[in-house]
Write a protein that binds this DNA or RNA. Structure first.
Lengths: 203, 203
DNA sequence: TGCGGATTAGCACGACCGTTCGTATCATCC
DNA sequence: GGATGATACGAACGGTCGTGCTAATCCGCA
């Protein structure tokens, strides 16, 4: 690995941390350079614009998310156990990835929703992918009979996403000590509501 | 009403709109003055600092939210109908209040969660109030027998908040045409799961 | 009609923003 | 060991930020 790529990785790691607290707009080249103890221009040379830096931060975060959350969850047995593993890793991934401001996608998602341009497009793309993954996880539980066949995987993904967003808010903004317990309770309620009700009358 | 208070109202109205798209940090005194076709210093004189402007924007938004969502919902009959009215008004309030960037509290909630200071404190205060209101609405449905007695009002509020946040994201970021339908479906599922299951075995 | 306080404008400031340019240092291969 | 490209630095640009002054203008009341 060349020296250039090495520092580039170092820059992106720190940039992700800053973006998680201050957002992709709050992320500043001068501030980033200060923390990394290098010159503004030296850092700038690695990306030829701030927009390119933002794009690479999003890509790096998506990579890390896949490696920390999605791929390990795929190792769990399919259906509900896999979904459960996904949820657990999802809840802790920001901390595990050393992001002091919580999930960078939550931050960026709100920040960029009214800001047209390539950065927004890139984020939307990755988040659509993520929603598709959620859907597939839920569909897997349906196919294996863990969930009823009338469970809508897309709706399930929507509801799961809601739990995570409400948790993020209760935890990080309101600093509610019950946030995590409530998120888990909501998850259990959602899963329970999707399971076959009784020993299944028709089968 | 003095002329000063009148322009102050005008300023705050526009400031709320800008804050809904660009956030309270993206809100800029110069930009605000341009849109309102007045001088930066003339506008600045109404608030003696940007922080004061941000605080007043939050207060103005909270007032408008109460008037548009909470108080009209209180006119509906208590219990589930009132909760339903609240949900409907909540879903449409940003549009009804003419906020082009969606709910300003969603924006501010993510923006300020890592930014200590009086602005954050003010937002947290208003959002805690709001969560308490949600809890009371749910508790009302329990007391009237519309919901089971083992329904936790705080958890119900958490779940409801999650639906709104997921809707905001699907609607504004992903621009998913099914967002509203899914939010309504999630609401119905949540309410159904809280209702007494069958003609009530124990009573 | 004119006075006085309330309201707005004009202008300047220091700080920071993203970006550019010329230059210096470093690693690498002949 | 000396040339060459990659990497980093320092200084500077035009622009925008929040904020502080002072002067002009407006409006309600005597």
């Amino acid at each position: 690995m060349s020296k250039g790529t090495l520092t580039r990785e170092r820059i992106l790691g720190q940039a992700m941390r800053i973006a998680s607290t201050d957002g992709l707009n709050g992320l500043t080249i001068g501030g980033l350079a200060d923390v990394l103890e290098m010159s503004k221009s030296g850092l700038f040379a690695h990306f030829r614009s701030k927009e390119e830096l933002q794009l690479q931060v999003l890509d790096a975060a998506a990579d890390r998310f896949r490696a920390t959350v999605v791929e390990p969850a795929l190792a769990a047995p399919g259906g509900e156990p896999r979904l459960r593993e996904l949820f657990n890793r999802w809840m802790t991934w920001a901390e595990a990835a050393g992001m002091p401001g919580g999930c960078v996608f939550v931050q960026a998602g709100v920040e960029l929703d009214d800001q047209e341009g390539p950065v927004r497009d890139r984020l939307v793309e990755s988040q659509r992918d993520w929603m598709e993954s959620l859907e597939l996880f839920a569909a897997g539980a349906v196919k294996r009979g863990h969930f009823r066949t009338d469970v809508d995987p897309a709706l399930f993904g929507f509801q799961l996403q809601g739990i995570m967003l409400a948790w993020h808010r209760a935890h990080r903004l309101l600093r509610d000590p019950d946030a995590t317990a409530r998120a888990r309770a909501a998850f259990e309620a959602l899963v329970a509501s999707a399971r076959p009700s009784i020993p299944q009358p028709g089968a």
